[in-house]
Every structure is written in C-alpha cells, then in structure tokens.
Design a protein around this nucleic acid. Structure first.
Length: 466
RNA sequence: GGCGUCGUACCCAAGUGGUUUAAGGGACCGGUUUGCAAAACCGUUAUUCGCCGGUUCGAAUCCGGCCGACGCCUCCA
C-alpha cells in the first residue's frame, strides 16, 4: 500500500516519497500566542495530528517541529494594551495552547521552537540573503526581500506578481519598497514596539513574520525536508515567502510536500479571531463537547474541504463517541485485551479503511467503513456469535482506528476498587432479584462518577465524563 | 477587479459518466431485546442531487447560462 497526498505545490495527488528512507521530517505552522486558539485552528492541528499518526502507523519515523510565534505586531500590541510584559503574555497563551493540545489528544511535536529564541539564525539568514542580492536594506533600517530576483516567486500560490490590480492596502502602504509586493524580513524599530527589539547589523528591530519559520524549519529539519503543513490561508503570502527566503538562502529545494487544510465554517463565514465568530476549546468544553467528539466532528469531512461547525453538532459528536466507546467496551468485556498476539490480524474491512487513509487521508470514507464494521461486529456480539479469531480481528481494527483518530481514551476504562466493591454488592442483589437494592447501588456508583449498564454478559461501568 | 472553491435528505457529510433506482453518521418514528435504565440490532426517512438548457445510449457527476454561498489577493489555521 502506498500513501498518496495532495501536494499544493504540484496541484495534484502524488505518491509520497521521503528524502531519507522511512524517515519523515515534518514542519507544521504553529500558533501566534497573543490570544486563545480556536476550534478552527484546531481543525488544522488535528488534521496534522492524523497525518503524523498515520505516517507513524505506516512505519515511518517522524521528526516533527511546530513553531511558536511569540513576537509580531499582534503580540506586541496586546502586551502594550494590557500593560504586561510580552514574555508573560506569550507564555500564558503558549501554556493554554499546550493544555488544549493535550485535552484534544494531539500528539506532541518533538520541538516547539520560539521565534524569540531564533533571532541569531534569523539575522544570519537575512545577512546571507542581502549578500546574495535577494534582499535589500531600506533607509529606515528595515530589510526587504526582492521578489523580482527570485524566479519561482508565485509558483506555490499561483498568484500573479506585479499585476495591475494591486489591493488597496498595498497601494496605500507607505513603505519605501522597490516593489509593493516585496515583503519584510526585518522590521526596524518603531516607538509602538515599546521595549521589544533586538540589535542587528541594520540597527534595532525585530524579525518579519515569515522569516522565523524558515529559520526554525531549516534549523531543526535541515535545508530540505519532506512535509510542511498549514491552513490554506497560509499559502499566500506566508508559505510563498518561506520558499523564497529559504531557497534563496540555501539554493536548494526547501520542501517536497506542501499540505494545506481548509477552513472551518461558522454561519457560512470562516471562523476567525478578527470577525469574533470563534469558539475556544475552553468554551466548548464547558458547553459539553467531549474531546473525542470534537475530533470526530473535525474529521468527518475531508481536510481539503470546508466543514461546517455549530454548537448543535455536539449531540452528534458526543453520541458517535459513545457508540465507539461502547463498541470498545464490548470487545474488552469479551477479553480482547488479553488475546494471544497470533489472533491480532487485520480484517478485510481494515484493509479498505487503510486504502482510504492512504488516499490523501480520506477520513470520511475511512470512518464509513469503520462504522459499518462496528455494526457487523455488534450484531455478532448480540447473537453471541463472535469467536476468538473474529474478536482478535475486531480488536485489531479498533486499535488501528483509535491509534489515528484517538477518540477513545482506554485509560478511562480502569475502574477503581471502590467501584468494583459496589459492583460486587449489586451483583448479589441482582441475583436475588432485589431491584430496589440494585438501583440504590447504581445510584451510589453514579455519585462516584460511573454509569452502570446491564447486559447479557453482566454489569458494565463507564466513567461519566465531564 | 484578478484567481479559486462550493451548492446532495431535518442536520453533518461521501459520491466527479453506467456495479449508486445517491455511502456513512446524527436526529425522528416504528419494531426486537430488557426488572427498570441504558446499550445493541432490524425497519422507515432524497425516484432525487441550487435553477434552466445542452452533450451522451446513459449525468448528481461533462459543457454553457443563471441564482446563491464562501475563500485568497491584507494579519489569519
């Protein structure tokens, strides 16, 4: 089986090949930590999580780097507006970001470099770009990239350069640039920057937004690496500029595969901080969304298509999660976790599931296959017709599914002894058909945070999630 | 103005020429099972794919027009 991925640079699906055999070097654009990340941001991060987990499951060793942008116009403005040091502000939102990642069961990257820790590398790159005539210094001490000198400029996004229909914003800019579309590598110090600046060969200032990603990705992954991801809004100008800077600097191909995820839509408009139509993870958590439910809701559409999101979808998400959890409970009840390894074989449906995942991470189709399979196995369980071989196959498929979709938290299945004692009592009461005592104990268990369900196989407890 | 995407049931969402007289999920209703509750299973729910026309033996799928929604071109996942 081979993995095909849609490469924005090629504008088509391509067979995925790594530079170094069985090793993937992956860079994903991280958050700007001036505010909480929202569920739209996490659509992209969860897509990247699924990509990474799928690569690992396919036998690749993945080196993953995600940057933290902790200095830019917005972070500086916010810290001044709120009267707190930049570092305090960015540390706060960085921590909140990591908590959200954790809650959403997103696997940690190997490195989270910060822009402010990468200034020397950034200065080194800008100096080299100037000497190679890819960049020039303006009178005020700002440094710009000269896109005219980089022939490939515009190839990724397909946007025309130097067209006659420049946006109003570009036309009204006051910059002393050679060309309006030249972008800034180093921003000279302005009063509005307050105490935020670094010394450089061109005077006091701070890095432009795009250069940090080039510096950090090259710094951690090398001059050429395998995959670079982000949201579609990063294609232009961010990633276009990254290619220009990086390839101008190294003279080598920067990235082989560019992967971009589409936006999450709210009331038909894209979710964004500026339009104030966004939900934070904290809000959704309080509203009642479970982590696994959000993962499902963000993966039930293909990552390259717009996906609608609303608070109404909570019912669906939580219900689907419960259904999959119940399925895993039933398998565990039957002894799935203690099966001989020889019995852990993939069923045919799992191979179909894998084929869909290998086709540009087709999660909606993969999910459809998984759901149909659940139904089949549940039916066998109802008929008490599932033998060890079939159980092993079901558990194998579930495990592969859950390794990637990460919806069910198996740790939550461990039941404390206090609950087990109550269950034993209830079992005795039920044997005597003492329904009153049985229901009382069920209520006691509920107060301890667990639900009890009765089935032909006996009692089953489920932790009530908050 | 330039470039691009999308419009499928009550809702989310697959499907890009014939094994689709449209996957999968949620919701709803009916049934089986059940001490209760829950879970699970079975069945029902788009003769139709924004609208109009065309190509074709055959179209949700291709072409043209119209209507509607959205994205990028400026910070943005």
């Amino acid at each position: 089986m081979s993995l095909y991925l849609y490469n924005t640079a090629a504008k088509k699906k391509q067979l995925f090949k790594t530079i170094k055999e069985k090793n993937v070097r992956l860079y994903t654009c991280g958050p700007t930590v001036y505010d909480y990340s929202h569920i739209g941001n996490f659509r992209t991060f969860i897509f990247q999580d699924v990509l990474k987990k799928w690569l690992i499951l396919s036998g690749y060793k993945v080196k993953h780097v995600m940057n933290i942008t902790d200095v830019d116009d917005k972070t500086i403005k916010r810290s001044i507006d709120e009267g707190i040091p930049l570092k305090d502000l960015t540390t706060y939102y960085e921590q909140r970001f990591f908590e959200d990642l954790d809650w959403l069961k997103i696997a940690k990257a190997d490195f989270y470099p910060r822009a402010t820790d990468s200034i020397s590398k950034i200065v080194e790159m800008i100096s080299a770009l100037i000497s190679k005539k890819y960049a020039y210094v303006e009178k005020d001490g700002s440094v710009y990239f000269k896109i005219k000198n980089f022939k490939k400029y515009g190839e990724l996004s397909g946007l025309p350069i130097n067209n006659s229909t420049k946006s109003a914003r570009v036309l009204t800019d006051e910059y002393d640039k050679d060309s309006p579309q030249d972008f800034v590598l180093w921003k000279s110090y302005k009063k509005s920057d307050g105490i935020t600046f670094w010394e450089s060969p061109w005077g006091k200032g701070r890095p432009g937004w795009h250069i940090e990603c080039s510096a950090m990705s090259i710094g951690y992954l090398g001059e050429s690496f395998d995959i670079h991801c982000g949201g579609v809004d990063n294609i232009f100008p961010h990633h276009e500029n990254e290619i220009a800077q990086s390839e101008g600097f190294t003279g080598k191909k920067f990235v082989n595969f560019w992967l971009h995820s589409e936006h999450l839509m709210m009331d038909k408009a894209k979710m964004s901080k500026s339009s104030k139509n966004f939900f934070t993870i904290e809000y959704l958590k309080e509203y009642g969304f479970k982590a696994g439910a959000l993962r499902y809701l963000l993966l039930c559409g293909h990552y390259r298509h717009k996906l609608k999101f609303s608070l109404k979808s909570m019912l669906k998400g939580n219900r689907v999660l419960e259904k999959i959890e119940n399925f895993s409970f039933r398998l565990i009840d039957k002894g799935a976790m203690g099966l001989d390894k020889k019995l852990l074989k993939e069923p045919e449906d799992c191979k179909i599931f894998k084929n869909h995942m290998n086709n540009d991470l087709d999660t909606p189709k993969a999910l459809a296959v998984f759901f149909s399979y659940i139904k089949k196995v549940n039916k066998s369980l109802d008929d008490n017709n599932l033998n060890k071989v079939a159980l092993g196959r079901a558990w194998t498929f579930f495990s592969i599914f859950n390794d990637v979709f990460s919806m069910v938290d198996l740790n939550e299945l461990i039941v404390p002894s206090s609950i087990n004692n109550l269950l034993a009592l209830r079992k005795k009461a039920r044997a005597k058909k003492d329904w009153k005592a049985s229901d009382e104990i069920r209520n006691l268990i509920k107060e301890e945070g667990y639900d009890v369900e009765d089935s032909v196989d006996g009692q089953r407890v489920k932790k009530i999630k908050i």
